[in-house]
């Protein structure tokens, strides 16, 4: 067993209080990657890169949920539930604030990236793209507005998913997603 000499005694390394475990390691990895990206290519470009990653992951999750539910398309209610569920699976704490044919509003109390997300708004593109992908593929259109984000320093997140292209969605900031 690996040990280390201290002043008077030998202590096993496994017993050392080191903040390192896989989940934390991966979150830190993503935080560092996004930090470097933001520093080098700028926030906008970094957001673009993460968007691609988010889209790919969202696409995979969309396929996984449809397969698991045995449907080719999700209903609006299913979409809302899937979004809350998938976030819960990765230690997020999302909840449905409201939903109707025009929009789904979700709240969040905990970020899956935990404290590592603070100061890294590009990482929010993961949420935007995953939500936008799943919603648009089943409902035809989605525009995701991140009204509040823990990454930007808000206490929690508030995410609005516009489901109809129109005056309301156009007036709102955010990214649009389309059915492929």
């Amino acid at each position: 067993m690996a040990t280390v000499d201290t002043e008077s005694r030998r202590v096993p390394l496994i017993q050392l209080d080191i903040p390192l475990e896989r989940d934390l390691f991966l979150r830190n990895l993503i935080r560092e990657l996004s930090g470097v990206l933001e520093d080098i290519v700028g926030l906008k470009e970094a957001s673009g890169f993460i968007s691609i990653v988010g889209q790919n992951m969202g696409n995979q999750m969309d396929l996984d949920y449809k397969k698991a539910l045995g449907v080719s398309r999700l209903t609006r209610a299913q979409v809302a539930d899937v979004l809350v569920d998938l976030k819960g699976r990765i230690k997020g704490d999302f909840y449905i604030v409201e939903q109707n044919d025009n929009r789904i509003v979700l709240g969040n109390r905990a970020c899956p990236f935990a404290a590592e997300v603070v100061g890294r708004p590009s990482m929010c593109m993961m949420t935007s793209n995953v939500f936008g992908m799943i919603a648009s593929q089943s409902l035809g259109y989605a525009k995701v507005t991140l009204e509040e984000t823990i990454a930007r320093g808000d206490r929690g997140c508030r995410v609005v998913i516009h489901l109809q292209p129109g005056a309301e969605s156009e007036a709102a900031p955010g990214q649009e997603y389309f059915q492929s």
Binding site: Q55, Y177, S180
Partner: peptide, 14 residues
């Protein structure tokens, strides 16, 4: 193209 078809924002191509 698959990415771009879905995205309303300009995304960097691969």
């Amino acid at each position: 193209i698959r990415l771009w078809v879905r995205s309303g924002e300009f995304l960097r191509g691969l």
